[in-house]
Design a protein around this nucleic acid. Structure first.
Lengths: 221, 221
DNA sequence: CTAAAAATTTAGACTTGTCTAAATTTTTAT
DNA sequence: ATAAAAATTTAGACAAGTCTAAATTTTTAG
């Protein structure tokens, strides 16, 4: 049984390991967890003792199989609670992250599985992130970033890589909702911004900063 | 903002103050929180500093108005989550206490109010306990203990004073469910056990130990 | 290749909530 | 009324998770 804090470290290590390649650094963890490197080192030793991570001093860190299983369990809980908050309680997608950060630590296998059933076994959370299986497997999605889509291909907005309130509210204001179909009309080479046709709606300008955080499915072709 | 632990102390002080009369003792708190008296003393000093309790050394403790408001807020959250677990997720009434003990500490006013709406503004939790108002008022119920009911009066089972799994499962096995109507047929003076007619069902024997933990409404008359 | 910079770890300390043992206060029983 | 018992508080310590400052290791730049 892990503490609240240990669970958060595992989740963060998982997140960073899948964002970069290879080992996760102490400093990166310190930044993400809003602590200091020295504190991270202490916790890494503890997680290593529990065989949840592979850790060699100065060499960075990697989840063990068990550690990854636990991390995915926590992410599963987080995402299911987000679905609950949006689908059942009517929160907006930009309001739910903080609450899910607390709810994800509630300890009960049965609670999570009943919640899953109650929600109709959703495959994705309100931000389009896939929900790990009860066994601790992360479903694979073949999404690409909108910033990499070529002109003329109709694609659907399937998820976001950034979950901040500001970012999500910006999308709302641009009428960009999950599931909407867009066609890139122009890519500006100097700043990599794109002009997209929102099918059945208006045309919107999207900066590279935003486009690289939008996930779309493979072109229908 | 209180810690998890402080919230639990407030809730426990509220509970004990309403069970006994007058001040709550250090030892009683130590027993209920499964800690030692010395630890309780430390926490009482802290809660007193925060003006959540009235505390004089060696004199026991009492909630301030603010402390009671907070305690009732926590109890409100606990009971609403219990309703959710039973009504929406299909747990039995003997399974939900532990989970609600964790869920009650999730910090979000809006979450609680949306949950309340989602559940249809329930007035009672699955054990018949009244749900405090958002403003922190405990509704008054005019219930009495089954052990005090006289022979021949039909009464309805409205709540329980004991929440242990064992007790609740015992009731289930005796076909005693909330809302059922019972008529006391005999009271045995030597052990205060009662024989009751379960209206539309069989007759069941109820020990004093059980009867004093069953709450019924005032006789219909 | 090596010195400076960057990253990481170690050492020692602080906070929260807990403990045991000892001291103090209150209660109870004669 | 007062001595013994019970309850409570104080003193000092510990574990978890954090911090700062100093030491160590790795990386990088010339």
């Amino acid at each position: 049984m892990q503490s609240f804090t240990e669970e958060n470290y595992l989740k963060t290590i998982y997140y960073l390991a899948n964002r970069q390649q290879g080992e996760v650094s102490t400093n990166a963890l310190a930044e993400m967890t809003a602590t200091k490197a020295a504190s991270v080192t202490d916790m890494l030793r503890k997680l290593a003792d529990k065989q949840l991570i592979h850790y060699k001093k100065y060499q960075g860190v990697r989840l063990t199989e068990e550690g990854e299983r636990l991390a995915l369990q926590i992410i599963r809980r987080h995402r299911l609670w987000e679905v609950f908050l949006v689908d059942k309680l009517g929160f907006r997608w930009d309001q739910v992250h903080e609450m899910a950060e607390e709810l994800e630590h509630i300890r009960s296998e049965e609670l999570v599985e009943r919640l899953d059933t109650f929600l109709g076994h959703p495959q994705f959370d309100p931000h389009g992130d896939p929900i790990p299986t009860p066994a601790g497997q992360m479903p694979v999605t073949g999404y690409q970033k909108l910033s990499e889509v070529v002109v003329g291909e109709p694609v659907q907005l399937m998820g976001v890589l950034e979950h901040s309130t500001e970012f999500l509210q910006h999308l709302d204001r641009s009428n960009l909702t999950l599931g909407c179909t867009v066609v890139v009309q122009e890519v500006n080479t100097f700043d990599r911004s794109v002009l997209v046709q929102l099918v059945g709606d208006r045309t919107v300008f999207i900066s590279y900063e935003v486009a690289k955080n939008l996930l779309v499915n493979q072109p229908a072709g």
